[in-house]
Amino acid sequence: MPAVPRLESPEVADGAAIWRIARDSKTLDLNSSYSYLLWCRDFAGTSLVARGADGEPVGFITGYVRPERPGTLVVWQVAVDEAHRGRGLAAALLEGLTSRVAGERGISSLETTITPGNTASERLFTSYAERHGAQVAREVLFDAALFPDGGHDPEVLYRIGPLSD
């Protein structure tokens, strides 16, 4: 049985591996490699990496606390390397991050966006809400027509809260 990955705050040096995991997921919008480096520097306190036995990232979750709603954690991206999928690692990353941020910053709700048909993300976040006794409200946040590059599905906002243990 493989070792359980360690969950830790990302370091700038993890940016390249996180970018590769996002690219290889084939479901996430891939941001520039530069943005992942910045994310690891500026949002390490609201993000986690899962490290394999060799210390390299095998999964990640990135987020931030909304400036206008400081009780809300926005989860930006979650991805797990293909070789580590199917073991509950995405759920562990989500639980680990929300637990840490709730303890440090007192969040009471979670937001994320999911494109229609992304069943894995829908299951991840709705099961999280069930475990925490929270309601899930859904609405289109960004209609497909808003994306300048075309061909982008709408982004549906999932508001989860209030959170309880």
Rank of each mutant, 00 (worst) to 15 (best):
V65P: 08
S35T: 07
A137M: 10
A17H: 03
E104F: 01
S127G: 08
T126N: 05
I107M: 07
T115E: 15
A83C: 06
D29C: 08
L38F: 06
A129F: 10
W39L: 15
L110I: 02
R20F: 00
Y128H: 00
G52W: 13
A120T: 08
F43N: 00
A92S: 15
S32K: 14
I114G: 01
H132L: 04
T113D: 06
A90H: 10
A137C: 03
T115I: 05
V78A: 01
D81K: 07
A129P: 12
E111K: 02
T62N: 06
A44C: 08
A13G: 09
T119G: 06
G59A: 12
T62S: 15
A53N: 12
Q135V: 12
R105D: 06
A102Y: 05
H132I: 02
G106R: 12
S33K: 14
L38K: 15
G45N: 11
Q77E: 07
T62I: 05
A83W: 14
A16D: 09
V140C: 07
V136M: 08
L94G: 07
I107K: 06
A53C: 04
L89E: 15
R51V: 02
N118I: 11
A53Y: 02
S127K: 07
L110V: 10
V58M: 12
A102V: 08
L73Q: 11
L89V: 11
L38T: 10
E68Q: 09
S109W: 00
V101T: 08
I61D: 09
D42T: 05
N118F: 14
A17V: 10
G55N: 08
E122T: 15
Y128G: 00
D14P: 14
A22C: 12
E95T: 07
L37N: 11
L73Y: 13
C40I: 09
E82M: 02
G55E: 13
S32R: 12
A137Q: 13
T27K: 00
E122H: 15
F60L: 03
R23N: 11
A83H: 14
P70I: 03
T27C: 01
G45C: 03
I18C: 02
A50P: 00
L89F: 04
I21A: 03
P67A: 06
E139Q: 13
V74D: 09
G15P: 10
A91F: 00
Y64I: 00
L28D: 08
E56L: 06
K26P: 00
Y34N: 10
S121L: 03
G86F: 12
H132F: 04
R123W: 11
D42M: 09
A134S: 14
V78P: 06
A91M: 08
L97Y: 05
Y36L: 13
T113N: 05
D14V: 07
P67N: 05
F125C: 08
E104D: 05
T27M: 05
E68A: 04
A120P: 10
A16H: 10
W76S: 09
L110S: 13
V101Q: 13
V12P: 07
